[in-house]
């Protein structure tokens, strides 16, 4: 009896322990690969090009980039689609009442975003939940896939984030006028302020309203870009120092961990700001 419970406990510890070891090993291998790849690039001393990783190239062969050309950015967007399909469709194909691990992750993401929409934007925003969930999953997976060494981060490009932020901005503005008519303009007329201040506040509110898509897009692209550039700079130090580059490697590992966190947080922030803007469109009165 006692031995039985002991062995089962040991197995469990061994399982979680081996999971941790595997995760740690994967991260270590990733970092080492990353650094090796960089050392290959930077054999010629300290010439770091942190922005080169964002260059868009045709994936098949060379040539000019037309609007339909399959580029490295396109490939990683496609991989994000595949990963999302694997999680949300293949992971839930069991339709189990008692979920498997993958299914419970999918349900967790679903419940997380749904609750966010409901809490921040209100119950009447739930019809827009699929759109918001699409944005969330795309940003999350593009960010995470971009952290694979040697990959390309689609969300580090302002063109990509600006399209998403602009789409949110346009949708929210049009929706606000459709739902509230001219009453949507009361968003800029702060009725709780003294009458003298209201025109000034209206100008400020108007400016801040139009800055929204700018900050919304640049926040995401800027965070991702800055993180990857810093990683590249540290890795360039490692490449310049050669085998004895202990400090840059520790720095790369630490910043890599931070970037994993930032990837998730930026996806969350983009989504929750979308919800906040949506709330303004549905309930413009302060």
């Amino acid at each position: 009896m006692a031995t039985d419970s002991n062995t089962s406990g040991d197995t469990q510890t061994a399982q979680s322990g081996s999971g941790r070891v595997i995760a740690f090993g994967l991260i270590s291998v990733a970092v080492v690969l990353f650094i090796l790849g960089l050392m290959d690039d930077y054999e010629s001393g300290l010439s770091i090009h942190p922005m080169d990783q964002f260059i868009i190239e045709p994936f098949f062969g060379d040539g000019p980039i037309h609007w339909y050309t399959v580029t490295n950015s396109t490939v990683w967007m496609g991989l994000a689609v595949l990963a999302i399909t694997a999680l949300m469709v293949l992971g839930t194909r069991g339709r189990a009442v008692i979920p498997s691990r993958v299914q419970s992750v999918a349900e967790l993401a679903y419940g997380f975003v749904r609750k966010m929409v409901e809490d921040v934007a209100g119950k009447d925003a739930l019809p827009y939940f699929p759109y918001i969930f699409t944005l969330f999953l795309f940003i999350l997976f593009a960010n995470f896939l971009g952290l694979i060494p040697g990959s390309f981060t689609s969300t580090s490009h302002i063109a990509v984030t600006a399209v998403m932020a602009g789409a949110v901005f346009l949708t929210v503005t049009i929706l606000g006028f459709i739902k509230n008519g001219a009453g949507f303009l009361s968003l800029f007329w702060v009725s709780s302020a003294p009458l003298v201040l209201r025109p000034i506040l209206a100008v400020i509110e108007l400016i801040s309203y139009f800055v929204r898509p700018v900050s919304h897009s640049i926040r995401l692209a800027g965070n991702v870009m800055a993180g990857h550039a810093v990683l590249k700079v540290f890795a360039g130090f490692a490449g310049a120092l050669g085998v004895g580059a202990v400090a840059p490697i520790i720095g790369v590992i630490a910043i890599y961990g931070l970037e994993v966190l930032v990837s998730a947080i930026q996806a969350y922030v983009f989504t929750i700001l979308t919800c906040v803007y949506l709330k303004d469109a549905l309930h413009p009165h302060h």
């Binding site: 980039i65 967007m77 689609v81 795309f138 063109a159 990509v160 399209v163």
Partner: peptide, 19 residues
């Protein structure tokens, strides 16, 4: 590379398709 405007139509097209 982010300000390489010649790649914008390509990125936007594939982003829209992806989304």
């Amino acid at each position: 590379p982010q300000l390489e405007f010649s790649t914008f139509p390509n990125q936007i097209f594939w982003l829209v398709v992806t989304l």
